[in-house]
């Protein structure tokens, strides 16, 4: 049972290592899907939104994590 728990924890940790990053990525994907499905926007523009937002999320998350480690 311990072994199974460790495997499950490893699987969850693979994708949900940082809750803030996970939430931001899922929100970005949802936004891109909504733009294509309901916004009537060219899929390529939504693809650009997906790419640009992921890059911004990465930079912001690393900065935030660095700041959090130094806050008193």
């Amino acid at each position: 049972m311990t072994m199974l728990n460790e495997v499950l924890a490893e699987l969850i940790g693979m994708f949900l290592a940082d809750a803030r990053l996970t939430a931001a990525i899922l929100a970005v994907v949802a936004l891109s899907a909504i733009l294509i499905r309901f916004g009537g926007i060219d899929p390529l523009i939504s693809g650009g939104v997906l790419l640009g937002s992921c890059l911004a999320v990465l930079v912001e998350n690393v900065r935030h994590s660095g700041r959090r480690r130094h806050s008193p």
């Binding site: 994708f15 940082d18 990053l21 990465l58 994590s65």
Partner: peptide
């Protein structure tokens, strides 16, 4: 995206 950006972070 979740896995790769987690590693990159």
């Amino acid at each position: 995206l979740l896995f790769g950006m987690g590693w990159l972070r």
